[in-house]
Design a protein around this nucleic acid. Structure first.
Lengths: 204, 204
DNA sequence: TGGAATTACTGAACACCGTTCATTATATTT
DNA sequence: AAATATAATGAACGGTGTTCAGTAATTCCA
């Protein structure tokens, strides 16, 4: 049946059109400040139309988040590929933090804002987010298997390094490091050093 | 001049009335979900009146944030008082994380949400926030002076432990640890362990 | 003490927001 | 060509933060 195929294709194209516009606007203006009306205007449809393709703004964000995790995953697959798990762990961390600092608004909607998790809970999984975490967890597990680090519980170890990375990125993008009274360039250097030092301390 | 004294006193009382209501409601419902109208109704004034005492919602948050940091500071002064800087460092970290997990909505408006920093930038300082950070920085500096830890740069060391603590709390309160597929109780234990392990690794 | 001036407060109005739904336009099927 | 099914619309609903002309209360001064 050719017609329903085309209909399905057109529907997917419409969803793409919406998501592309939404992603660009979320990144340019932030999630909260981007209105459904503004997205609709950008793609030259009426506000109501968006609701024929996505059930609410939260679902829109869920999709954008999924794509954002896809980007992070691609970055990991490109830059964190060392066979040596210890090296790979370091690559994962630096890639993660660099991604966050380079795309603060994407990072925001992936890891900081509250909204999206509503839909994520309903759908029962955190698309691509899971995969990104596994990337870290695998490197960590291999490190422990090969007794390269001083942790024994790989879950706690993963929790720690992820939290450190997230803490560094999120305090930075939310301007909380202003309290340090240090120039932006210095902060960037200190963030890198912070990761390296932590990895150094972990080393068996 | 007694009258203008009383006027000033009444003005301060009014500001207290507003802030107390705002804080309670921010904590109960969150910042975004608390409307100016709702605060006004709670204290039985019209919405416009609030604007005679605070210039916008952001300034309201700035004040609430200041009080929240006051609470954290009090907690630190109560629970992190060991003479031994190493012990004190551990007390600071555990107090910080316990505070965040016990008061997630306060923590939210202190360290996570974007809004308040606008006013903080205008006012040029982060009231009480600075003092809380100094509490950590001092303990850290003493540790380094006494060569108790393997860091050399106290700023990087402070950055690291704060980021770790913040990462743990904020990923938890924003439900990102769901990816771990672990029960809430276990996560709480892993968070504590994560801090202890990190301190252990830091030890000289 | 009584009228003028100052201060405090109000609440309707403005320009937004996410979302819904009866209506209209388009496309497909019979 | 008419009937049906699908797609899109945009006005309307109940909400938001904020402003401001108008009113009520208080203080001041003759």
């Amino acid at each position: 049946m050719g017609i329903s195929d085309r209909k399905e294709r057109e529907k997917q194209e419409m969803r793409r059109l919406i998501i592309d516009a939404a992603m660009r606007m979320f990144v340019d203006e932030g999630y909260e400040k981007t209105s459904i009306r503004a997205i609709a205007e950008k793609i030259e449809y009426s506000p109501g139309t968006l609701y024929l393709y996505y059930k609410d703004k939260d679902e829109l964000l869920y999709e954008v988040q999924r794509e954002a995790f896809g980007k992070l995953l691609k970055a990991l697959q490109a830059k964190a590929v060392s066979k040596d798990p210890w090296k790979r762990l370091s690559q994962v961390m630096h890639t993660y933090v660099e991604f966050g600092l380079a795309h603060p608004d994407l990072y925001d909607l992936m890891f900081i804002i509250r909204a999206p998790m509503k839909t994520a809970e309903e759908k029962g999984d955190w698309k691509n987010g899971d995969t990104c975490f596994e990337y870290l967890a695998n490197a960590m597990q291999e490190c422990i298997d090969q007794k390269l680090i001083r942790y024994t519980d790989s879950r706690v170890a993963s929790l720690s390094v992820w939290s450190l990375g997230h803490g560094l990125v999120s305090l930075e993008v939310r301007c909380r490091f202003k309290v340090l009274q240090v120039s932006e360039g210095d902060i960037a250097r200190m963030i890198k050093k912070s990761i390296d030092e932590h990895l150094r301390l972990m080393k068996a």
